[in-house]
Amino acid sequence: MGVLEEKKETARKVVTTKEEGPNLKGTMIAVMLLGGFIVLSWFGVYWLYLVRL
């Protein structure tokens, strides 16, 4: 690999880590579970509203 290419390579790496940032897969799953809980309880009460109409 030439020096220039190597430089390009590192530059690309820097860019990607900056864009992707740290590994936050666990966080994403945790907040999605939280979101799922909210959606379920909301539709639960909405259902109660509809049956009581």
């Binding site: 864009e19 992707e20 940032g21 740290p22 936050l24 897969k25 966080t27 994403m28 907040v31 999605m32 979101g35 909210i38 959606v39 909301w42 909405y46």
Partner: peptide
């Protein structure tokens, strides 16, 4: 962070659905 952006899109999407339903 791109996952945070995704989460906010999904979360706000759910809120929009709630608002539309009611």
């Amino acid at each position: 962070h791109k996952l945070e952006r995704l989460w906010l899109i999904i979360g706000s999407g759910a809120l929009v659905v709630f608002l539309l339903v009611i």
